[in-house]
């Protein structure tokens, strides 16, 4: 197995996000279940309300997924930050593999996890829409909505490599001599993602234009990961 695959395998196996500090307490499972059930009741209530009202704009329900790109950025950053928070950065950075390989492994693990999370959210959202449509008596439109949602997901998953790359770069900068630049870069990153959202949501882009933007975002992602690699190699603070 290649080094990259081994790093990805071990990173995927690791479930710990942030290690418990001594003296801290984790939420008991019973309460997690109670809060989960409460959230489910609230969502079901909202769905029932929407279904009774009968004026749901189903296309716009899918749009909320844009917000998930910010989540992807934050999660990617946290995957780097946890090495410092969990005091494993010394082990991670002294591995006999290039910084590029280490960060590429983090990048792919984030992407794999992100696609999985997106699939779960897509299914949950589809069930939500299905319920509302059934209440509104619009069962015949289900297939159209499912396809539209699928297209929407392909679009935003195509842009998630950029969001993940930006997240990794931001947190590498935070752990480097360039830390003062972090807030500025973070705000800039959020603005760029907002501009992307604005382009896809409001501008009437052709299929070719969308593909062009996605291709450019992938090229920029390569540059972003390379920059993060250079900073981690030359300017990281341990």
């Amino acid at each position: 197995m290649t080094t990259l695959r081994l790093l990805i395998k071990n990173e995927l196996r690791s479930k710990t996000r942030h290690r418990e500090r001594s003296g801290s307490t984790s939420m008991p499972k019973k309460w997690i279940t109670i809060y989960g059930a409460l959230a489910l009741v609230i969502v079901a209530g909202i769905a029932t309300y929407l279904g009774i009202q009968g004026e749901t704009k189903f296309k716009e329900i899918w749009y909320f997924n844009w917000g998930m790109l910010f989540w992807a950025t934050a999660r990617a950053g946290k995957s780097v930050q946890k090495e410092w928070d969990n005091e494993t950065a010394g082990w991670w950075l002294s591995l006999p593999y290039s910084r590029g390989t280490l960060l590429t492994a983090k990048f792919f693990v984030n992407l794999i996890r992100w696609v999985k999370t997106s699939a779960v959210i897509y299914i949950a959202l589809f069930i939500f829409i299905l319920y509302v449509m059934a209440l509104e008596g619009k069962g015949s439109e289900i297939f159209d909505v499912l396809v539209k949602g699928g297209q929407w997901y392909v679009l935003f998953i195509s842009l998630s490599p950029f969001a993940i790359g930006v997240g990794i770069l931001n947190w590498v900068i935070r752990k480097s001599m360039f830390r003062p630049m972090f807030p500025l870069l973070w705000i800039l990153s959020l603005i760029v993602i907002n501009i992307l959202a604005w382009l896809f949501l409001t501008a009437s882009l052709t299929g070719g234009e969308m593909l062009g933007i996605i291709a450019v975002s992938w090229i920029v992602t390569l540059g972003v990961v390379r920059l993060a690699t250079h900073i981690l190699d030359q300017h990281a603070v341990l």
Partner: peptide
């Protein structure tokens, strides 16, 4: 290398 103030991966 055993780093200073290091911890091991908690879920291992």
């Amino acid at each position: 290398y055993l780093p200073d103030r290091a911890r091991w991966y908690g879920d291992h």
